[in-house]
């Protein structure tokens, strides 16, 4: 279908949006700037933004061509997991990259995700006798909490909550990744399909469930340091209800994985 029209791409970048009129333009520009020699497509899943996000995307299609910038809108807000599924249906790439549209995920790290994937892929070709699971990265996940990574724009309270949540999860869950709630990730296509179909959580607990289930299923996970500049336009919040959601998610994962 869509895939046939634009030819097959190596990487499909899925960006869910809701009222990201300005940010989506900036992020598309930055993706093209930082991946000049990569065969990729950007799939924007817009949940019926009233601010004209889709108009901007159509203008971007004029600049970058409709084969590279795909608009796959949905009528209204329908949740993150289904947004990825929706984007996946229209993705032609063997690998799928997922990132936020709010510029907290900078496209300059995309080459690191891709080179890590390719490096691991090359290793797999060299060692054909070994099982794929032992040599190939199925998930490459961006992590803020390591050397060369980092966060900007968080106050002490936010840092404290984040550290507490992280220590709790690492101790109880042994999740196999240092940054559980981040959502800047590269998946092999079939791995992403498998993970989405087995995850039920909403919001950012969904990201946590994805990576924990990936670990439990024995998928090979690699990490890339990323920096995270909290959203420039618009507000980001972390209130009491998010903490309760997080704890519920933790208990849910303890009981089911």
């Amino acid at each position: 279908m869509e895939a046939a029209a634009g030819g097959k791409r190596a990487y499909s970048i899925i960006v869910p949006t809701y009222n990201e009129r300005l940010n989506i333009a900036l992020i598309v520009y930055l993706i093209f700037k930082h991946l000049p020699d990569v065969n990729f497509e950007i799939i924007i899943v817009d949940d019926g933004s009233p601010d004209g996000t889709q108009d901007i995307v159509k203008q971007l299609q004029q600049v970058y061509s409709e084969d590279r910038v795909l608009l796959r809108a949905r009528p209204r807000k329908l949740g993150l997991g289904t947004a990825y599924l929706h984007g996946l249906k229209h993705a032609s790439g063997e690998f799928v990259i997922i990132m936020d549209a709010d510029l907290s995920h900078h496209p300059k790290y995309l080459p690191n995700f891709i080179s890590l994937e390719e490096c691991v892929f090359f290793n797999r070709v060299l060692s054909l006798t070994r099982k794929q699971k032992e040599t190939g990265a199925d998930v490459v996940t961006g992590t803020r909490y390591v050397k060369n990574g980092g966060v900007h724009g968080w106050n002490l309270m936010r840092k404290l909550t984040s550290r507490g949540a992280n220590v709790l999860a690492q101790t109880l869950l042994q999740p196999g990744a240092s940054d559980l709630t981040g959502s800047f990730r590269l998946y092999k296509r079939d791995v992403l399909e498998d993970l989405i179909s087995s995850c039920v959580s909403k919001g950012y607990v969904f990201q946590m469930e994805m990576i924990v289930r990936a670990t439990r299923k024995g998928y090979h996970i690699e990490e890339v340091p990323i920096t995270f500049v909290d959203r420039v336009f618009g507000i980001s919040k972390l209130g009491g209800s998010e903490i309760v959601e997080y704890l519920k998610g933790l208990v849910y994962l303890l009981l089911t994985t």
Binding site: L30, G150, V151, G153, L156, L160, R163, G164, V229
Partner: peptide, 30 residues
């Protein structure tokens, strides 16, 4: 663990400045 993590919490103030430069550049181009 929490205290240790807080003391060595990786931050990146320079990234915010770089991002602002990227935004200006992107806006101009677009």
């Amino acid at each position: 663990m929490v205290g240790f993590g807080l003391m060595f919490f990786p931050t990146c103030p320079q990234e915010a400045i770089l991002l602002q430069q990227d935004i200006v550049e992107a806006k101009e181009f677009l």
